[in-house]
Simulated scan of single mutants.
Amino acid sequence: MNECSEAPREAAEVTTSAGHRLHIRHATPGDLHLVNQFHAQDCSPASRAARYHAGRSRIRASEWRNLTHPDKGYTVLVSVPGQDRLVGLAHLFWQKSAPPEVAILVADDWQGIGVGRAVAGWLVGLATAHGHRVQQAYIVPQNVRALRLAQHFGAVVDHVG
């Protein structure tokens, strides 16, 4: 059975702890240009390295097709309602022999105001709706914010690097 077939794929809205409303929608293969623009214009090399554990400036088309394939999990885009510009990108990946992996990238200008926590809460709710009470995150030890976020949601943390 396809785990993703039971959960709705419609958009949602969440509010950060700082009171910012955010729009979350499921990514499509056609969003690659928007996502690569987000990486290049809104995320510093340090932010991208913290997310990908490597120096990357873009996602290749073949990777994006994989990331947006419904059997792999969920990839979502985060924006301010009514705006096309992204403030975040997040993933909930199904894994065969481990809890689902949660991964989040937040635009530099939007870090530290609760975007990651709001999006992670939404993803954890989605994972829970699929019967997964525990999630997994791969985090470099220096990424204190991500470690705190993972601890808050009870994620299994695997240190990378």
Rank of each mutant, 00 (worst) to 15 (best):
M1D: 09
N2P: 15
A12W: 06
T15N: 05
S17N: 11
H23F: 10
R25F: 04
H26S: 11
T28W: 05
H33G: 11
L34Q: 15
L34C: 13
H39S: 03
A40R: 12
A40P: 00
Q41R: 14
C43M: 07
A46T: 10
A50G: 08
A50F: 02
R56I: 12
S57Y: 06
S57M: 07
R58S: 15
R58D: 15
A61K: 13
A61V: 14
S62C: 14
R65K: 15
P70T: 07
K72S: 10
G73W: 00
Y74V: 01
T75C: 13
V76F: 01
S79W: 09
G82H: 06
D84H: 14
R85H: 14
G88K: 06
L89P: 00
A98R: 04
A98K: 08
E101H: 03
D108L: 09
W110S: 06
Q111K: 10
G116E: 09
A118V: 04
V119W: 00
A120H: 14
A120D: 10
V124G: 01
G131F: 00
R133I: 02
A137Q: 01
I139N: 03
Q142W: 12
Q142Y: 12
N143S: 06
V144G: 09
R145S: 11
L147V: 11
L149H: 06
A150P: 01
Q151C: 05
Q151E: 14
H152N: 07
G154K: 00
G154V: 00
V156A: 08
V157H: 07
V157Q: 02
D158W: 05
V160Q: 08
G161T: 07
